[in-house]
């Protein structure tokens, strides 16, 4: 008997195919280059070649890497804390309705408050060095919370009945029943949250101006109208957040697969 290719497998392959194509990126970089050449004003629109050259100048300097490490460490810490908090609150809310009742309005408020208001409010309480930790934490927690809660709520009742009949103990249920059901929801929360925490974290640094951060570099570029610097740092932010997102989701997928299949 042969094995069948399921719609889930086909979906996975299609999703991989739907990712960003190199030729499409090349087309847009070309459009950017042509636009910059047509405008002829580096201060308004810097060309990709100039950005690359500026990046080449920045990369050998230790300060460049220190700024990346400074922001990366804090934004990542906020993101990871949000993953833990959102998951714990999601699990507790699914089991205890008072926790759910208490948490729901809090999450709605956190989700609705503009990032800029949060940054200014938090600056009163937290030193600017740690501002991006708190802001990325606040941005990601409601997303993780809602997704984890949604994943638990959509649990397949027939599978839980099966586990009840066979008296499957909780650790095994967690690993083989709950984890596979909630993992896709958690994964999508992480994918959304990772993009958001970088945007919000850097915005917080631009306002709070902690010494040695990427946000400070962006602010300086704005003050001195150093457009190549502004674009170079923006490219750095995109690359760092993209690489981290890919690595994090890859490791998460491997971990879930290993837990399910071992």
């Amino acid at each position: 008997m042969t094995t069948s290719t399921t719609s889930a497998d086909r979906g996975e392959k299609q999703n991989k195919r739907r990712g960003v194509r190199l030729w499409a990126v090349a087309v847009w970089v070309m459009v950017w280059q042509l636009g910059a050449m047509a405008l002829g004003q580096e201060i308004l629109l810097v060309s990709p070649v100039s950005v690359l050259l500026r990046l080449g100048e920045l990369v050998p300097h230790w300060d460049f890497w220190k700024a990346i490490l400074f922001s990366f460490w804090r934004i990542t810490l906020g993101f990871l804390l949000a993953c833990v908090t959102g998951t714990v609150l999601g699990v507790l809310s699914s089991r205890f309705s008072p926790v759910r009742d208490l948490t729901a309005p809090l999450m709605s408020v956190v989700k609705s408050i503009p990032v800029a208001s949060f940054i200014i409010l938090v600056l009163i309480w937290v030193p600017s060095r740690n501002l991006s930790v708190v802001i990325s934490f606040l941005m990601v927690t409601p997303i993780v919370y809602q997704n984890v809660l949604g994943g638990i709520s959509s649990m397949d009742q027939k599978l839980t009945q099966m586990a009840d009949v066979f008296r499957v103990p909780f650790p095994r249920r967690l690993r083989y029943l709950y984890l596979p059901q909630v993992a896709p929801f958690f994964r999508s929360a992480c994918a959304v949250g990772l993009g958001l925490c970088w945007k919000a974290g850097i915005a917080a640094e631009v306002i709070g101006l902690p010494d040695g951060s990427i946000g400070e570099r962006l602010y300086e570029a704005k003050v001195y109208l150093a457009t190549p610097d502004l674009f170079s740092w923006t490219v750095v932010i995109i690359l760092v957040s993209l690489v981290f997102e890919k690595c994090f989701l890859f490791l998460l997928d491997r971990l879930v697969r290993r837990l399910e299949q071992s």
């Binding site: 009949v165 066979f166 596979p180």
Partner: peptide, 13 residues
């Protein structure tokens, strides 16, 4: 112990 009408297996395992 039971064999249910549906398989009720952990699909990813």
């Amino acid at each position: 112990s039971a064999v249910f009408q549906e398989d009720r297996l952990c699909e990813n395992a």
